[in-house]
Design a protein around this nucleic acid. Sequence first.
DNA 1: CACAAAAATACAAACGTTTGCACAAAAAAC
DNA 2: GTTTTTTGTGCAAACGTTTGTATTTTTGTG
Lengths: 335, 335
Amino acid sequence: MKRATIIDIAKALGVTPSTVSRALSGSVRVSVATRKKVEEKAEELGYQPNVMASSLRRGKSDTIGMLVPRVNRHFFSHVISAVEQILNPAGYNLLICQSYERLYNEKLALQALLKNRVAGIIMSHSMETGNFDHIKSITNENIPLIQFDRASATVAGPRIINDNFSGAYMAVKHLIKSGYKRIAHLTGALSVNVYSERYRGYRYALEEACLPLLEEYVLEEAITKETGFERTRQLLETTETDAIFCAGDFSAIGAIQAIQSLGMKVPDDIGVVGFANEPFAELLTPKLTTVEQNAYDVGNKAARALIKIIEKGSLITEEEIIPVRLLVRESSIKF
Amino acid sequence: MKRATIIDIAKALGVTPSTVSRALSGSVRVSVATRKKVEEKAEELGYQPNVMASSLRRGKSDTIGMLVPRVNRHFFSHVISAVEQILNPAGYNLLICQSYERLYNEKLALQALLKNRVAGIIMSHSMETGNFDHIKSITNENIPLIQFDRASATVAGPRIINDNFSGAYMAVKHLIKSGYKRIAHLTGALSVNVYSERYRGYRYALEEACLPLLEEYVLEEAITKETGFERTRQLLETTETDAIFCAGDFSAIGAIQAIQSLGMKVPDDIGVVGFANEPFAELLTPKLTTVEQNAYDVGNKAARALIKIIEKGSLITEEEIIPVRLLVRESSIKF
DNA sequence: CACAAAAATACAAACGTTTGCACAAAAAAC
DNA sequence: GTTTTTTGTGCAAACGTTTGTATTTTTGTG
């Protein structure tokens, strides 16, 4: 009970496989009558084209590789969803891999995508990825590559990136406007473009307001709830911080809990702003002021850029900055 | 500048492609010397096997299809992650599709997976899916199929399901123990196994405690924050409800907000329990009592079951129930 | 050293498509 | 009624592997 092939259809109809192939692919070089017959027979036999044979013959596949640090992160899963929403109607399928934030896995995943002869790759780097030599295997093979969110200018091809700088700048400026003056910054590894850009926005806002940039106010390795909590306690015990700009909402939760654990109040004693607008942000008490990233737009743009490259050859834009939005809520407004 | 094939390696070494193939696949029928030479040459040429050619020849692929309603849902994205974590080291890749809760898309996605000759499918049905005839195209082709979470006993093959009944039973029993007596239930379409089972658990707990099952206390189509809000207001205005068991955490948020909007307090006036333990549940005020599902376990078991079927032929277990845990927090404890 | 057995390699077909080219039949032009 | 053009099919090769069988080479035995 094997699966039907075009050969089966051909035999049943007394024509050749080539005719069947042409009929099914909508070629003009086949009569209306045979086309109809072929289509009916295909339906009758439950024919499903074998994409492997097709891809092998055509020398390309309709599969797109997607590589993200983790699929179960709010931002990434939404980007994936958006990408899928564009790619699927266009006839592409999505092969998804995770790096789990490890460079080793990232390399492995790229190998796997290469082996699968994907028509293109949409990826966001792991936190560990500082060197981008392993990407060369992709560009060498002439596989279109789109980077998003965590991206390096070292790598050729389009980059779809959130406006981290402006987001951070707006966030800190807002804190300053609210009357906070000694603003700390919890962030991740500054080797990652995302965090370095947010840091840059933070510095810029401080400079603009003629506030001093104090080294002890900037704490790396603080992106989880736990590390956010620890760093914040440490911060409050050794400095006179009156506000914290967190490079992520998770560390913001930790910060808020640390503040409250020391008997202080958000936003009255310490103001807090996060980044990413995780679903829980507006459900916290106090509601968390944060920077909203448009994951949908990022995925959308990335998918469209890729399709353009694949179908129309190379394209122009190198870097596309997706605007972000500051959502002012309760955690940053002194009463 | 084409990609290297085994033929290139063969030519460079003066052997035949078959020898190269056997050398690379670790066959015993090849000398240590040639194997080493082949491996070196492969490395030198940057050879990557063409999985399409391989799959075509072998008549099977190492790609697993995964079909979920949406990837950007906490539960599903975690299941995907768990599945990937098992499947990847085992040499499989994941082709991911979404149904967006629509039957039409579910059918389309299954077609796509069939065309890609996936080695197996792991899926969870859309909300609309009441009839499972379209699954026959899968089982007819003898493709191993694992259902998880939203699953039907009509379909042959393993089902990995959360213990929705017990979860609901524990939740409602807990509410009763806390002193609540007029317990309402917000739920989704009862045609979906997940919701019908939770409803069954709810009824069972009430019966056990000799509490009446009132029709007006059970409200369908209440799974989002918005519908949860509306249904709850309606409920509180027309009945004497003193607790609500929500079949999801999102409707629980809506319920809490509705309760508070009417000037009542959770848990003092009305107790609330959710389902799923979304990340925000413990961050709400009051912290939401809810039922924790083990997405990791579900994905893990599903992936392992699939591998077992693929590699060792059919297997025994038809339905595997993954235990859930009641997380008692603040929203359900009268002071 | 001859001969059998074992080991290593070669040969060739197959997987299911696609596609350039050839060819026949029908239609159009003269 | 012949020639040219158009239209519809067929033929066969190719895509890069894998694998059963045949063949060669090596090793071992008497």
